[in-house]
Design a protein around this nucleic acid. Structure first.
Length: 134
RNA sequence: CAAGUAAAUCGCCUUAUCGCUGUUUUAAAUUUUUAAAAUGGAGGAAAGUCCGAACACCGUAGUGCAACAUAGUGGUUAACGGCCACCGGUCGAGAGAUCAGGAACAGUGCAACAGAAAGGAUGUACAGGUAAUGCUGUAGUGAAAUCAGGUAAACUCUAUGUGGUGCAAUGUCAUGUAUACCAGUGCUUGAGGGCUGCACGCCCGAUGCUGGAGGGUAGACAGCUAAAGUGUAUUGGUAACAAUACAUUCAGAUAAAUGAUAAGGGCUCUGUAUGGAGUACAGAAUUCGGCUUAUAGAUUUGCUUACUUA
RNA sequence: CGGGAUGUGGCGCAGUCCGGUAGCGUACACGGCUGGGGGCCGUGUGGUCGCAGGUUCAAAUCCUGUCAUCCCGA
């Protein structure tokens, strides 16, 4: 099992993030929201992921860092099972929209719910696109 | 012992598993990736951005006015509005705390209510005094009543100082585009611009400038961490601080690393046979010196003690 | 990194420049007009002027520090 989450798998390009937020679709499982978009990466990876916490809800930088670290941890430990059946490359941004600092266990549960919803949404959309094309 | 006061220091630790990031070495691969190993990886305030510098660029930044800052004396420092010492004022019983602490015989203002009168004004009562007169004292109003009055954190004056913008500075490379379109304005009789407000002066200036509607980039490297560094000791100095000697290398990310989980141990509070609860404030962003603010808890040292009680 | 604004009854705002009385609308309570409601009229309650310190005889107002909220530029 690969538990790593290194620099290449993080979403870093400012341009890509801008297009992601303007064109991407989203699913949510409170207190998480996933923004995703089908795209293409030059270095051949299947996905790149970023995390984000609003400054409006958490004024202290310490709290924001804590939540982002927990989110990365929850994603890192379970990403293998989320992406078993994905073939096309995607960009992801996970937002935390709650107002209290969560625990790792809560986040892990919500993260699986979130990616279940994503899989459903993804499988619903793809055939429609195919029909439109045909 | 208690209460107080001044100053200094620390601000959780260990192990295991899974990760992140910088550097170095080796190997693969081959010209920037992968793997392994070694090693470094948040703070006393990293915070607020309130002062002062370093460094970089703008035209080596001209004159006048304006604006702003500072304000006892001396010292300290790269510099300061910081710090230290002393003098003076105010507060406190004291140790001690605190102060924008220059000028009101340069000028202009301001003073509610009360009061006869609030800065060119002298009234009432009583007493004293005179040739005569608010001439003198007391009472009364008020913060202040003739005192070279108060007020400059009112304008002002005096002294001193300040060019501007900031690492998104700045340099190099890569990628890409529109010197196109519409409207206005201007081309040496000068539009507009130049990184402080105004005036003058100076400089640049036609493939220009302003607006509209649009197009493109938003990556990499350098700057970027060895420095007014840190620690210890000695010497000089009342002190801030300085000098010398020895030792030492101590983050460098960029949607932004420095973490997560588990177990055990400290410490504090509570309870006392086991236990339970808590463990603060807070996260580097060019770098330093200060200031200010937040902070569970712990440690050390100097000094004071009026009243009250023993 | 830099620049700016705001904070005053429960709510929305004046007053701050140029210092002496904190006021307006709305809301709330009571009374009146009406058969009742609405509306109008009258009376009243309610404010540490964000916080701390200073200047002054006197501070919402002047000065310094600080806290919070909001906005703007690169």
């Amino acid at each position: 099992m690969n538990f790593s989450f290194n620099n290449k798998e993080k979403l870093k390009s400012k341009k890509l993030i801008d297009t992601l937020f303007s064109n991407g679709q989203s699913v949510s499982a409170f207190p998480l929201r996933l923004v995703f978009m089908s795209t293409h990466f030059d270095d051949g990876l299947l996905f790149k992921t970023g995390v984000s916490v609003s400054k409006r809800h958490f004024k202290r930088a310490v709290d924001r860092n804590r939540i982002k670290r927990l989110m990365r941890e929850a994603f890192r430990l379970h990403k293998a099972q989320y992406f078993d059946n994905i073939s096309t490359p995607h960009a992801f941004m996970i937002l935390y929209i709650g107002k209290e600092i969560p625990s790792l266990i809560q986040l892990e549960n919500k993260m699986s719910q979130l990616f279940d919803k994503f899989s459903k949404a993804n499988s619903n959309i793809t055939p429609q696109e195919n029909e439109a094309d045909s």
